[in-house]
C-alpha cells in the first residue's frame, strides 16, 4: 500500500512529469557520486538488493487483497537511502513492465519508496540509541516509515486526481461556451464526480494497517537475525 498502484492515465500529467524530473536530478547526483567515489562494487550490491525486493514480492501473503512484502525500508536500513533509491527505481520499473503500477508512475513510486527507505534508515539509527534491543527499534522504524510513505502516496493520488476531468474528460460544453468555470459535471448533468479523500484514506487504512504491521514484524525479525549473524551489515552510515 505504501507505493502507488494507480495505473497510467489517471494521475495528472504535470505530477508524473515532476516525479520523473526529481528522479532525473537524483540520477545526476548519483552519476557524479559514482564518478568521483569510484564505488562500483556498490552497483552489484544494489542490484542484488533490487532482485531481493522483487523476489520477496513474489512470496504471497494470505489476506483479503493479494498482499506482498515490499522490503524498501529494509533496503534503506541495509544500504542507506541514496543507494537504496537506485534499487527501488529498478524494482518499480520492472514491476511497471509486468503491469504492477503504471509506467508513468515510476518516478513518483521511486520518490515514495525512497522516502520510505530514508525514513526507515534515519529512524533505525536513532531508535537503536533509544532501545536496548534491536527488535523494537527495527519494528518502530519500519512501521513509522511505512505509515508516512502511505500518507505520501495518498497525498500524491489526491493531488494528481484533483482534476478528474483530465482523466475522464466529461464536462459541460454549454458552460465552456458561455465562459463560466464549473466543477466537473458528468454527461447526464447530474452531481459532479469528486475524489473523496476521506473514503480513500479509510480504505487505505483498513488494507494498509494490516500490511504495515505484517511487514514491520517480518522486517524486524530479518534485522534481528542479521544483527545476530552478520552485524556489520547494519553498520551502514548511508554513504
Amino acid at each position: 500500500m505504501s507505493h502507488i498502484h494507480i495505473p497510467d492515465g489517471i494521475i495528472a500529467i504535470w505530477l508524473w512529469i515532476f516525479g520523473y524530473l526529481i528522479v532525473g536530478i537524483y540520477f545526476l547526483a548519483m552519476y557524479k557520486h559514482f564518478k568521483t567515489a569510484a564505488r562500483h562494487k556498490k552497483i552489484a550490491i544494489i542490484s542484488v538488493l533490487g532482485a531481493l525486493m522483487l523476489l520477496s514480492m513474489s512470496i504471497p501473503i494470505p489476506f483479503a487483497l493479494p498482499y506482498h512484502l515490499n522490503l524498501s525500508a529494509l533496503s534503506g536500513v541495509l544500504a542507506g537511502p541514496f543507494y537504496a533509491g537506485l534499487a527501488i527505481f529498478c524494482v518499480v520499473l520492472i514491476l511497471a513492465l509486468v503491469g504492477h503500477g503504471g509506467i508513468t508512475i515510476v518516478g513518483l513510486n521511486t520518490i515514495v519508496l525512497t522516502a520510505e527507505a530514508a525514513i526507515a534508515f534515519l529512524l533505525f539509527r536513532l531508535s537503536r540509541k533509544i532501545f536496548k534491543k534491536i527488535f523494537p527499534a527495527a519494528f518502530i522504524s519500519v512501521f513509522i516509515s511505512l505509515a508516512i510513505s502511505t500518507f505520501l502516496t495518498v497525498a500524491i493520488v489526491y493531488a494528481g486526481t484533483q482534476n478528474l476531468e483530465y482523466a475522464t474528460h466529461q464536462h459541460c460544453h454549454k458552460c465552456e461556451s458561455c465562459g463560466h468555470s464549473h466543477k466537473f459535471v458528468n454527461q447526464a448533468g447530474k452531481k459532479p464526480e469528486t475524489f473523496d479523500i476521506k473514503r480513500f484514506i479509510t480504505l487505505i487504512l483498513i488494507t494498509g494497517g494490516f500490511g504495515w504491521t505484517l511487514e514491520s514484524l517480518i522486517s524486524a525479525f530479518i534485522i534481528s537475525y542479521i544483527s545476530r549473524v552478520k552485524p556489520d551489515l547494519l553498520e551502514n552510515k548511508g554513504s
Binding site: I6, L164, Q187, A188, K191, T194, D196, I197, L203, T207
Partner: peptide, 16 residues
Amino acid sequence: PLIFLILFLISIQNLT
C-alpha cells in the same frame, strides 16, 4: 491493476 483500481473507484463520489 483492477484490484487497486477498485479502491480508487470506490473513493469517487457520484461515479458514473
